[in-house]
Computed example of a mutant assay.
Amino acid sequence: MRGLLEAAFAPASLDVVDDSHRHIGHAGARDGLGHFTIDIVSEAFAGQPPLARHRAVYAALGGMMATDIHALAIRAHTPAERSAG
């Protein structure tokens, strides 16, 4: 996951957290799919509204969305947005 995101966005920072342990017993967890939180800062998001940023992350992860990921929380910002708040 990290490699795909780094290749697609050349992020200034990237945190990927596996939250799957917090969802034991949940339907997606029973199927072996994970729950993740991504915090990504990249100039690639400049000029994009939040929905477009999320779609870009989903596209970068491609097949992982069907085979490895059940739930994904995304925080996607530009470097300027991150430094402002």
Score class of each variant (00 low, 15 high):
R30E: 13
I24F: 13
G47L: 00
G47H: 00
Q48S: 12
G28E: 01
G28P: 00
A29R: 10
S42H: 00
R53F: 05
I40D: 03
Q48R: 14
A56H: 00
E43Q: 14
G25R: 01
D39T: 13
E43I: 07
H54N: 11
D39L: 13
H54E: 02
H26K: 06
S42M: 04
P49G: 14
G28C: 11
D39C: 10
A27S: 13
T37D: 11
R55N: 05
L51N: 12
A29S: 14
D31C: 06
A56G: 05
G34Y: 01
V41M: 02
I24G: 09
L51E: 10
R53W: 01
L33E: 07
R55A: 02
A52T: 14
V41K: 01
D39A: 14
F36M: 02
H54P: 06
F36Q: 06
H23M: 14
R30I: 07
L51V: 15
V41W: 00
R53K: 03
A44E: 12
G47T: 03
I24D: 13
A27G: 08
A29Y: 13
L33P: 09
I38P: 04
T37W: 05
P50N: 09
S42Q: 11
V41A: 05
P50G: 09
I40P: 01
S42G: 08
R53G: 00
I24Q: 15
A46R: 15
P50K: 14
G32Q: 04
A46K: 12
I38F: 10
R53S: 02
T37P: 03
A52N: 10
F45T: 01
L33Y: 04
S42E: 00
R53M: 07
P49Q: 10
G28I: 02
A46P: 07
R30A: 13
A52E: 10
Q48H: 11
S42P: 05
G34C: 03
G32K: 08
F36L: 13
P50Q: 12
S42V: 01
F45E: 06
H54Q: 05
Q48P: 07
H35S: 14
F36S: 06
A46T: 13
L51G: 08
P49L: 10
H35F: 15
P50S: 12
G25E: 02
H23K: 10
T37L: 08
I24S: 10
P49R: 14
H54T: 02
A29W: 14
A52C: 06
H35P: 03
H23Q: 13
G25S: 02
H26S: 13
G34W: 00
F36K: 01
A46D: 09
P49I: 06
I38L: 11
A27H: 12
L33C: 09
G34F: 05
G47D: 03
I40S: 03
H54Y: 06
R55S: 05
V41T: 07
H35R: 09
G47I: 06
H54F: 06
G47Q: 01
G32I: 03
A29F: 11
D39M: 09
H26W: 02
G25I: 01
I40E: 05
I38R: 05
R55P: 11
L51M: 15
V41G: 00
A27C: 08
R30T: 07
G25N: 05
G47S: 07
P50V: 12
